[in-house]
Design a protein around this nucleic acid. Structure first.
Lengths: 225, 225
DNA sequence: GTGCACATGTGACCTGCGCCACTGGCTAGG
DNA sequence: CCTAGCCAGTGGCGCAGGTCACATGTGCAC
């Protein structure tokens, strides 16, 4: 069953079943419970991970102890690729946001595997490239958008990746506390709460613990731009 | 003479003279004058460029017309790599900040060249990876640092790459107007000006047209963190 | 159950910084 | 030389949003 999830990962998407299974066997698995840390910013390590199940947050801590989330990743997404190409300490801390399972591959094994499989290597690269593009977009948002706008954008992104459409709207179980959401958009918990409350009062969405139901995506999207 | 500059580019650094010259001949050259645009965000194009001489700015324009600079690049630095791996329109506009010269290489030629030269490919990758790392750092700064802090950081970065040490301090000819500097750090021209004036009044630096002389790097660095 | 810890909701401040308005200097083109 | 445009410098005003301070839930351990 896990192969299905792996199939979404760019590293696997171009492989046939046989190859996927082969790669699979050279990967080891691990699991974490909500709140557990996989590795810390500054740790050494060169493993590449793919999320099989659950969600994780990539975060960095500033010198004065405040935290900033770079991304929330779910099944099929990978992380730790930076350490593959740019050897050095891990640049972010990875924490499980829900109970989660991972497959991991060491640097050496990965390189061996990529050897002679240019298509797969290409996939990996374009993955990193698009990550860079996205980081630049986030920069622009931090400069140009206000907090409600960034919150709206974050919700839409989460909806896109984790949402399930139902009669009463798109249910997004993001599994984040408002504190975490705030760290993700670079704002204070209170301000994010007020933005959410405002959206809810306009009838654009309904708040539920660690999740939201988006009832008017259209409006939310307009607020996000 | 240009080979010296190319040598600083990661694409070339691992090559011997012969190989460097060979690659060199497959690249075409172009030049721009201050203010000229090499390509616009949204243009199609898959060429990789290396700055031979001068400086360029990579910028993006928001929907409401405001501009945000991603980076200032000087001799030896490359850009346009994103389009290589993540095909699609150019994600930023490149404008010459001074008169400038470039060497360029098309996607196809580059791939042909990388074939069988894993070391060079590795260099290219780690370049992109470190670019991503840096983009993440910038994010953190936008969230955690105030404008003076970001200005200080930007100056230190520019000093690091373009500074010349002299008796009276580090001379940094950044060639940027304060407006451009402001776009680089994500702030208004006025606020940047006031930050600079403040630094100057403390004796940390001296302002000159399109350049600064940093007299107390130590203090400036402390303000930046 | 009772209590404790953590998450959410909301108001009252205070401040950094964006925006506006203006001045003065420097360069270029007539 | 004068005028027109850019660029740098500086003050004032207003507001988004951070910080503080509580109140109210909500779930888990005992």
């Amino acid at each position: 069953m896990d192969n299905d999830v792996l199939r979404q990962a760019p590293l696997f998407s171009a492989l046939d079943d046989e190859a996927a299974t082969a790669l699979r066997t050279s990967m080891s698995e691990s699991r974490l419970q909500r709140g557990d840390v996989l590795f810390h910013e500054g740790d050494s390590g060169d493993k590449l991970y793919i999320v099989l199940d659950g969600k994780v947050k990539l975060g960095r801590t500033s010198s004065d102890g405040r935290e900033n989330l770079l991304a929330i990743l779910g099944p099929g997404q990978m992380f730790g690729e930076l350490s593959l190409f740019d050897p050095g300490p891990r640049s972010a801390t990875v924490t499980a946001v829900t109970d989660a399972a991972f497959a991991s591959l060491s640097h050496d094994d990965l390189l061996r595997w990529l050897e002679g499989r240019p298509v797969v290597a290409r996939g990996l690269l374009s993955q990193i490239a698009s990550r860079l593009r996205k980081a630049n977009d986030v920069n622009a948002d931090l400069v140009f958008s206000d907090v409600p706008g960034r919150v709206a954008k974050a919700l839409l992104d989460l909806a896109d990746r984790f949402g399930r459409t139902a009669d009463d709207g798109v249910h997004v179980h993001h599994d984040l506390t408002q504190e975490e959401l705030a760290q993700l958009v670079g704002a204070s918990r209170e301000t994010v709460n007020k933005a959410l409350a405002d959206f809810a009062s306009r009838g654009w969405l309904r708040l539920e613990p660690r999740s939201v139901v988006i009832m008017d995506i259209e409006r939310l999207a307009r607020r996000a731009r």
